[in-house]
Nucleic acid binder design. Structure first.
Length: 703
DNA sequence: CTGGGGATGGGGCCC
DNA sequence: TGGGCCCCATCCCCA
């Protein structure tokens, strides 16, 4: 029988390793959101320490803690305790690093949080220390008095403190407490001694380098555009109730943590709102005179929460960042929030009832910097839309002009007091237009009637009337810049943004700009390491569902994409495409069949001597189908043309080739290809018809 | 060393 | 607003 032997320090070493991993984000499988801060951790550790967290982590990878119960600063201490079993250092370190008295998280707050999170050891420790101090009151909360958002403090309530999203890293969790930094950390050691499991917004440039985000598994500076200029700001400035755009630089001597990029709006509990120091609205534009404070929802979500909800992330640094000057109520209203929470119908300033998408709820709520700086303090929206892009709002005019009938039908100008009545009215338009043009166009026309019309011509120039051709019938909304057409105006509007010189959705972390909000939020996920989609088989996580689907084929062995040239099978279409390029180099004859395989036509025989190659017409039919599919995407039109052209290579019979000329050329034209390409196809067909000597496809190879 | 395949990440874009 | 698909780039592994 073996004696029980214990390796001394094993548990401590284990904890040390875990904490080390946490600080690097290694194997972290859960993100805890506390107000504006993100913390990465390990589910197992949390579950082993806190009954409350245990109950949460089994269901979710993303936890959202009630910031009224635990502040980011306090939770950081709690997390430190969980991973180190120590509290003293953190508390003292926090106190030492505090900028303003009272800014450090209090022991009382930690106790409250520990109780809330059900961490008995920490509760006991706090109580013990409190007893030793023999007092409670001085420990109560850092707060609004100091206005501190110290490294460990939470912003004073009622203060619109500039708050980070991804915090740069500054502490050494397992090692000695962070120095009471009188200057920014510098050098590699600063990067190493980071608290990278805690994520806030860091700015590119010096801040990013200080943060050494790669250590966190986050490379925030990667692919940052050179013009991303989110200025760094000293903490003391950020934490004070100043205008965020006020002149920086006066408080660098009390620099306490690496600069932060994104000021957030901490949720303002209603009861504290009254105590709030009147603060200039940071969203009124830089240099502008402070306007009236917009109403703040008592339960207004934090900016981070709003970001996670894909609501506008409000940056107030630099004119490059977009802003949303609407009140949270307006934003809530726009996204279909509870109308009861905002009684009185559409809020003033909304020129279109929010129930009608396409009237500005799309990207128009994101104002470009140029329009922002050029606009007045007047919150009414008509001012300053992007140049060359008439504001669809304008069609509605001023809502006041319709009295109580704020829901206005664009084509006829009638106003209605409710969306339901407007809907009924629009239905009447639909029926009228159905009688005139048929169902399909009527539906589109009705969309325009409901404010969904094309964004051009002041929002009223919707395409009604019978379209000229089939394509226009199906996709009546045509882009004025590139002639692409779409079947619904929202898509057209979305597409139009790709032509804008100013991309309306900048990443608040790296400054990269996007044409679509969804792309930007997706991009943000990569910064934050949020990967909600986990593989059940291997645990690998992805930022997108599609990636997971793709990945799952690895486990299932499914390879639905088959090369029609060599029979090779692939789990991912993109790899087949890559593979096809290899074939294309080898021979265009193969490319025709290869391209046929790209169109989602598994099993279509290629030019490998099998199947339907004995039937050129069949090949052409397949090629045409494939080209049709390819042509659905503009970028594949060239491939479709090439495919069609190469298809003629298989038309061995001159008679067949001749007979194919016209439909081939016609279809080429239908694809919207250039006349040159159509002529080329014709020429090729004619060449084939002339005799086998001329059968070459080299001329159709990509040039 | 090189090329090909497997796999992943990020962005664009349409629905 | 999110999903889905595509493209490009990249990394890693292996022959």
């Amino acid at each position: 029988m073996l004696d029980t032997m214990e390796a001394p320090g094993h548990s401590r070493q284990l904890l040390l390793q875990l904490n080390n991993q946490r600080t690097k984000g290694f194997l972290c499988d859960v993100i805890i959101v506390v107000q504006n801060a993100l913390f990465r951790a390990h589910k197992n550790v949390l579950a082993a320490s806190s009954a409350y967290l245990k109950s949460l982590v089994v269901h979710d990878n993303l936890l959202n803690l009630d910031h009224d119960m635990v502040s980011p600063a306090v939770f950081r201490l709690v997390l430190d305790f969980i991973y180190t079993g120590r509290l003293t250092d953190s508390i003292e370190a926090a106190a030492a690093a505090a900028v303003a008295p009272g800014a450090e998280p209090s022991l009382g707050a930690v106790l409250a949080a520990a109780s809330y999170l059900q961490i008995p050891d920490l509760v006991a420790l706090c109580k013990k220390r409190l007893k030793r101090h023999g007092k409670y009151c001085h420990l109560r909360g850092g707060g609004s008095g100091g206005g501190g958002y110290a490294p460990c403090g939470r912003p004073g309530r009622g203060l619109r403190a500039a708050t980070p999203v991804i915090q740069a890293c500054y502490s050494s969790p397992a090692g000695p407490p962070p120095q009471p930094a009188a200057e920014p950390p510098s050098g590699p050691e600063a990067a190493v001694n980071t608290h990278c499991a805690e994520l806030y917004a860091s700015a590119p440039g010096p801040a990013a380098s200080l943060c050494a985000p790669e250590l966190c598994g986050l490379d925030l500076s990667k692919k940052s555009p050179p013009d991303s200029s989110v200025p760094e700001r000293p903490l003391s400035e950020r934490e004070l109730p100043q205008r965020p755009d006020s002149a920086p630089g006066t408080a660098s001597a009390v620099y306490k943590e690496p600069p932060l990029a994104l000021p957030l709006l901490p949720p303002l509990p209603f009861q504290k709102l009254e105590e709030a120091v009147p603060t200039p609205d940071p969203f009124r534009g830089s240099g502008g005179s402070p306007g009236p404070e917009p109403p703040v929802r008592p339960d207004g979500p934090s900016l981070l929460y709003r970001w996670m909800k894909h609501e506008p992330v409000l940056g107030n640094y630099g004119d490059d960042l977009v802003r949303d000057r609407r009140s949270p109520d307006e934003r809530l209203e726009e996204r279909g929030g509870d109308p009861a929470a905002s009684p009185g119908g559409p809020p003033l300033g909304l020129v279109a009832p929010p129930r009608y998408p396409g009237t500005g709820a799309d990207g128009d709520d994101y104002k470009s910097s140029s329009e922002e700086t050029g606009s007045s303090e007047d919150p009414s929206p008509p001012s300053g839309h992007l140049d060359g892009y008439p504001c669809p709002h304008l069609a509605y005019g001023e809502p006041e002009s319709f009295g109580d009938n704020l829901y206005v039908c664009i084509p006829c100008g009638k106003g209605f007091p409710s969306s339901e009545q407007l809907n009924a009215h629009v239905e009447a338009h639909v029926e009228e237009e159905e009688a005139l043009y048929g169902r399909a166009e009527a539906a589109e026309g009705a969309a325009g009637a409901a404010g969904l019309g094309p964004p051009f011509g002041g929002g009223g120039d919707k395409i009604t009337g019978p379209p000229g051709g089939l394509g226009e019938l199906l996709r009546p909304y045509r882009c004025a810049s590139c002639d692409k057409s779409y079947k619904d105006p929202a898509t057209l509007r979305q597409h139009e943004k790709t032509h804008w010189l100013t991309r309306p959705y900048p990443c608040t972390i790296c400054g990269k700009k996007f044409t679509q909000r969804g792309t930007m939020t997706r991009h943000m996920r990569s910064h934050l390491g949020l990967k909600p989609f986990a593989c059940d088989a291997c645990g690998m996580r992805f930022t997108r569902q599609y990636r997971l689907t793709e990945h799952m084929r690895i486990h299932s062995g499914e390879k639905p994409y088959e090369c029609q040239v060599c029979g090779g099978k692939f789990a991912q279409q993109r790899n087949l495409i890559s593979h096809m390029k290899m074939h294309a180099v080898g021979g265009a004859a193969g490319a025709a069949g290869a391209l046929a395989g790209l169109g989602g036509l598994p099993g279509v025989p290629g030019p490998d001597g099998k199947g339907k190659l004995d039937f050129p017409e069949g090949v052409f039919a397949v090629a045409r189908l494939t080209a049709e599919q390819l042509s659905l995407k503009q970028q594949d039109k060239a491939a479709a043309a090439e495919l069609l052209a190469q298809t003629t290579h298989f038309l061995h019979d001159p008679k067949v080739a001749l007979e194919s000329l016209y439909p081939l050329a016609k279809f080429t034209a239908e694809l919207g290809l250039s006349p040159d390409k159509a002529a080329e196809v014709l020429s090729q067909g004619a060449h084939l018809a002339a005799g086998p000597d001329g059968r070459t496809i080299d001329r159709f190879s990509p040039t």
